[in-house]
Design a protein around this nucleic acid. Sequence first.
RNA 1: GCCUCCUUAGCUCAGCCGGUUAGAGCGGCGGACUGUUAAUCCGUAGGUCCAAGGUUCAAGUCCUUGAGGGGGCGCCA
Length: 486
Amino acid sequence: MSKRIEVAELLKPEVYEQQIDREITVMGWVRAFYNNRFIKLNDGSGAGMLQIVVDQEQMDENLLKRITFHSCIKATGLLVRSQGSGQAIELQANSIEILGDSDPEQYVLQAKAQSLEYLREQAHFRMRTNTFGSVFRIRHGVAYAVNKYFNDRGFYYMHTPIITGSDAEGAGEMFRVTTLDVHQPPRTENGQVDWKQDFFGKSTNLTVSGQLQGEIAALALGKIYTFGPTFRAENSNTSRHLAEFWMIEPEVAFYDINDNMALAEDFCKCLINHILDNYPEDLAILDKRIQEAEKNLPKDQRRSMGLLDTLRFVVDNDFERITYTEAVHILRNSNPYKKGKFQFPVEWGKDLQAEHERYLVEQKFQKPVIVYNYPADIKAFYMRLNEASDEVPGRTVAAMDVLFPGIGEVIGGSQREERHATLVQRMAEMNVSEEELWWYLDLRRFGGCPHAGFGLGFERMVQFITGMSNIRDVIAFPRTPGNAEF
RNA sequence: GCCUCCUUAGCUCAGCCGGUUAGAGCGGCGGACUGUUAAUCCGUAGGUCCAAGGUUCAAGUCCUUGAGGGGGCGCCA
């Protein structure tokens, strides 16, 4: 197997120029077999295909019949310049070996466009398609860029726990982790389940956020980030939610809300730039797919820009930054508001709804928007309380949301409340247990400092970059309410 | 959790106001084809109309319930 050359490598001019007229071996999956003569081979190393030319008369007829859609083959032969116009080079096969048959009468994928919904049910095969191959190569690229971005800027990667003992994080419903017998759990005297007898001696859950532990690290190592799986047991049935997703959470000491916003914007742009620079072929495949899908849509539902233009636009323009109070003002003076087009009310103190965010991002500013300084009553206990101001009708916290076209909230973050007394008061207001978060409060008692951070939904970013409309199509094995197949 | 739409051949869908033997394209299979690029051409097979119950002389079509899926909303990332 060691003699094998990867297709992506071979398709580079500087590589194939060295290999012309030499014998090489490739392995991969057959994407097409035309005219009993031309095989299109892809081995997943990139989006590109190698054309393999077969001499019908020199090949066993039974072998040729086994060269079917997505069968896996090994081909050895001479690399030559292609006579056809669609490719620069091709392999003249001397020998072909079938590594894995694929009976077309039984195989569920076909050499034609199949719906994303159907492919989702065939998740064990869908990565072999152009679209999903590109999506998952880009997903890798984004993950790499995340680590590179932070490493290059002196951030340390922290691994925060997957199993957590606190349920005070307030980010949503949690999945319970237990080794107790669900049919016969031990009970206390008053009939409650006795969690003291559980594995950890207490009730535990899968994490909904690494932020609180991230703050511990930031108050020691200065600049840190987490990047790991996150679990939310919300019964969310949308194209933007998963029960298991990956989240990136930087946390930085000595940052205020403005530093936080600047970091968020720069980070988003760097991720997108990395993909624009390194995955042009995969982006082109996805761009083409979107354009073809949109041909079937009425004109008013089509995107105004192609995928590549959208990405470049985000990278080339500053994100709009507006306070929540300004957002409410803009919305109240907007046409849809005046015409009664909004379903939900717009008034100071109420959270912005998806329709309002969409208006700001897609109509008013037509680029990513950061909304900050939200009312304190609709945000989490750990967000830093702002000084009162005459221009603002109520208490606000230094929270921010980064809103992207098409997918809405990509980032939520805040400057954290570092003042012990204020935090204790906020926790009391919001019924958060001081006892359980004793260590979190300790951070404010001993060597505390101003700090800030945010959470970025990894799949949402991949969704934006790939242009996939359903988040289930940017994670290999999506977990959603009622579905944990594969 | 709420609203809404969908479920007919391997896939994507059509099937009118309930009426005889349920259609198409693609895919599969058989054949032709030595420069194809989602190849092309000829031929051919393929159906428990999601499930259960109901209305009716008659149900793919109407009603009820259930299952699976899509879209939207809420919750959020």
